[in-house]
Simulated scan of single mutants.
Amino acid sequence: MKTVSEYNDMFGQETLHPLVSIINFTDAGVLMNRPMNLGFFSILFKTERVCPIKYGRNDYDYQAGTLLFIGPGQVMSFEEDGTEHRPKGYALVFHPDLLRGTYLGQHIKDYNFFSYDIHEALHLSEEEKRSVVENFKKIEYELKRSIDKHSKKLIVSNIELFLNYCVRFYDRQFTTRDYSGSGIVEKFDNLLHEYLNSEKLQDKGLPTVAYFADGFHLSANYFGDVVKKETGKTALEYIQGKLVDIAKEKMFDGRRSISEIAFELGFKYPQHFTRFFKNQVGFTPNEYRSLN
């Protein structure tokens, strides 16, 4: 499905703008249960299901309302009993062409939640749900007006405002969900320590963010955002920092050559280790060893 108008046609909705649409599923037709590969951004606000969520440090009411973000090229489907699905809620869809030449177009990749897994949806509090509906209504208001020279700027600005609210809501979720916060960072730190002090470095090479995210059953982007929320560093920066600490410690053993240390740390070539170390520390390994 490449165009917004195709999406509108599937639900029996009029296309008010060729590049963006708001759909109220209450007024929409039945969606057949089949996989769809979308050529545009899709944000689904589901209201029909109770979503039992274990609470974290604070209590929020997640009992109805989740936001699911789908980027262009991703495949979505509804797993239902039977052959058709009548969702309840709203959808905001917008084509990448809408964002061409705008600030949001340059920074859309900064909104990592478009590449989160489906089980990492945004679970909303009652107040947040009201905010989502208000934002959708602002966009819908512009769509129902005649298109003029101001339409694109106002629509894109409202979408950007909505996405920034979602960043705030996800920050809250990172804090309140049971698996987030210091708990996940502490476990990550323990797993990383175990990895860096085992033969995994030689067997599997340098640790990756995806490796640890998989251990928590999270996407790499979601996992990285949780770590950054708590530590101020990306997961990759956190891994690299620990790797540098171990490398510095090994430097003080004069019996080891730089090449040996590089191989022990999982680098295939000593020059790669030298380049990495200098980028992180400001000195080459030999310079650092001499200074200390």
Rank of each mutant, 00 (worst) to 15 (best):
S180D: 02
L192I: 10
Y288W: 14
R168K: 06
M1H: 10
S219N: 04
F277L: 12
N158C: 08
K204C: 14
F273M: 13
V93Y: 02
Y179C: 07
K233T: 10
S257G: 15
Q271A: 15
E48C: 02
K152N: 14
K242N: 14
V185I: 15
I118D: 07
N197S: 13
T234L: 11
H17F: 13
N33I: 03
E249N: 12
Y165K: 01
Y211F: 15
F45R: 00
D148M: 07
S290I: 15
K109T: 09
I70K: 00
Y195C: 07
G183M: 09
R86E: 01
D189T: 14
Y179L: 11
P207M: 06
I246N: 08
E249L: 12
L19E: 06
F174R: 01
M1N: 07
E84Y: 06
V227W: 03
K248R: 14
L99P: 04
L206N: 06
S157F: 08
Y90H: 05
M32A: 10
V132T: 01
F40L: 06
L196H: 08
G282K: 04
E287I: 09
F277P: 02
G29A: 08
G215W: 04
S146Q: 11
S131Q: 03
F162T: 01
D9F: 04
K200G: 07
K187C: 11
T176D: 10
I239L: 15
I159T: 03
V75S: 08
T15E: 03
L218N: 02
A28T: 01
S180P: 03
M251S: 15
K137P: 02
Q202W: 11
T102D: 11
R177D: 06
K46Y: 03
R255P: 05
N221P: 05
G89M: 01
F252T: 15
F273D: 08
L67I: 04
H150N: 13
Y55H: 07
A28R: 00
